[in-house]
Write a protein that binds this DNA or RNA. Structure first.
Lengths: 211, 211, 211, 211
DNA sequence: AATGAATGAGCCTTCATTCAT
DNA sequence: AATGAATGAAGGCTCATTCAT
């Protein structure tokens, strides 16, 4: 009967951000299904009602988290767009820079972990969001490949679709070991190796009689 | 009012296999968490008690499914072991053959889907099993890479670990589009493209006598 | 971040009346239990606190609504009081007039709907209020019946209590079809039919051999 | 962790019937909304799971209760069907008999109470079910009225629809005082009074100077 | 080997109400 | 007079698991 209000008032947005951040950590750590709303409110030191004041449902919270971080990522990756033919070294440097910079955000690491853990366990809405993100990423490579094939800089025998899948997969997997398995990876080296594999590797060698 | 036990008695193993097969489909389609024991027994046309006669728990069922299929896979992939230096073309052919052959098993497709959906959403036990499988697969490449690096056939600037992650990721991703997204992929072409990317791509160029 | 209090200040009573009117509509449409305070404040474009500024509780709001409208009804029906023996035709006309007049108030229709929907689903307080209203209405008839029985104008074989229940029921039911089922009923005709049934029907016929 | 099964096993149908009977009482007493599933399982001395083993939802339970009793009622009232012209006295007797007999079932009384409490507070599904029952009942009267109007035995100036509403209302209201208000009513007398009002009352009097 | 009624902890969600601002 | 973030009891429902038959 006696309702007590001992808690600090935050304005709506701050609470929301706080819940999202904490929830993302829990989701990433234990998985979405295994994280209960109770876990979340305990971590956030709020009560049930407060949670549902800010989010329509647990799923809604997940959506908000994903949308927010995905948008941030989209912004960051825009810069990688390679419409104009730049020298290879410049591209290398660009990827290296952007990659290194992103990897420094600790929130991002948690988000990547969440993303990779929960990619498939969900209704298509979620899956599609994450997937179209990766697809977007792939397109950058894909465009480059096709264009470069036309210009004779990349061998024509490879299938661009499969190749782009391959690239996404490579990126995902390395991210997986970094974010989920928490392996200490030298980020600079990792990026370079992957660029090496795909860029150098795909480039048609003058002296090579392909097949 | 007389309860009748009219249900066919299958000998234990057949029932077990039947449940596993049906459950695997359900897990692959709806996800492990979203598939209830009720869903399974309904599909299998048995009752609760019967289920727990064959499996200790729902988790136990998943384990059994994974163990069974993973062992089959291990057997199939043993042949890919490349201790002895074989000519590249032979290797190419080998991967191509094994891959094509595996892709024909419809049960395997379902299992791959399950594996890729649920890889991360779980307690470490499950994750480790699946992961060590992929690791095993990676090692085949990894060994080859390292050895080939020593022999001067593969560029030394790449990191073998990252490279093998990259390869696993590529394979996973293509499998994902095939099994989960159910895209119609030309398997032969896909395998060839990936071999092309990694094999040809990794080979140190100028002085190389291809094949 | 500065919270602004931009909302129009209505003087207390107007706000109160506005909330009551809107809430009555919602209660009538969705039922008391299924209408949340949130629904009400959304409709009234106010916030939680404002609501509780005007009403102690949701139940208090309902009480206020009922009291207000019930009092209006009492006023209107006072005129029907028949202490003095009036000629039948005059009575007929009176009921017809009062009924027709009442039915024209759209707010009343909503209130009737609410009353009939929620009569029983509640704690006795509410139920009693509504019920004593109907009882009051019944008494008008009841008095007339008894008096008329004494005067030999109404057959003595009927039970006045049951008869008055019967009359209330008849009125309620026709109101129900009108207000809740929203059937297009010719009000004049309906009133006349009911008067016919009860008045004409109950009058002892001189030439009639009763039973 | 330790699940204890101390409870007697009943076969499904008996449990179901037991729950329905107890729940009906609770619904009738406190109202559907104010009766929680917890209330029900406490009364039935079972646990949550057991409840949902037998009923899909709380609403489903209500539906089952209503369907069951409504069907029983339908059976009982079939006999009242008056296709063939029977003498008035015979009809009187028939109604009197059926009514008296029904009123003796204590479960029925509870059901009537429930029905009258919850008629309107619900989604149309429930409302329609109850309503079509009353409509069915009304039709019996309605048929008689129309036919009797044709045969010149009932005055033509009344509206059959309104008249049937009036009759249903009368019945409902008397039932209400009997079942909900728990008044001690002489059933025989009540039935007779209502028959008197409607039957005798409606009959056109040969020597009567109408109005 | 099979049955299926019973369990109960745990989940997500709603909502009337309070009170610091 | 008005705000709206916070409360927390209570609700309906799910589901893996057990065990008497």
């Amino acid at each position: 009967m006696t309702t007590q209000h001992r808690h600090k008032r935050k304005d709506g947005l701050r609470r929301q951000a706080q819940i999202m951040s904490l929830a993302m950590r829990l989701f990433a750590e234990k998985g979405y299904h295994s994280t209960s709303v109770d876990d979340i409110i305990t971590a956030a030191q709020i009560v049930k009602g407060t949670f549902y004041l800010h989010f329509k449902s647990k799923q809604d919270l997940l959506n908000s988290i994903v949308d927010t971080h995905l948008n941030l990522l989209y912004e960051s990756l825009k810069i990688l767009d390679i419409s104009l033919p730049r020298p290879l070294d410049e591209i290398r440097q660009l990827y290296s820079d952007v990659g290194a910079q992103l990897m420094q955000d600790p929130e991002l690491k948690v988000f990547v972990k969440l993303m990779l853990r929960e990619v498939m366990g969900h209704d298509s809405g979620f899956l599609n969001k994450i997937n179209s993100f990766f697809m977007g990423m792939a397109q950058l490579f894909s465009q480059y490949i096709t264009k470069a094939q036309d210009e004779g800089r990349i061998i024509k025998s490879i299938d661009p679709t499969i190749t782009s899948y391959s690239i996404i997969g490579s990126v995902k997997e390395v991210l997986f070991h970094w974010a989920v398995m928490d392996e200490k990876l030298d980020i600079q080296k990792s990026i370079n190796t992957m660029i090496e594999i795909y860029f150098t590797g795909l480039i048609e060698q003058p002296s090579k009689e392909v097949r």
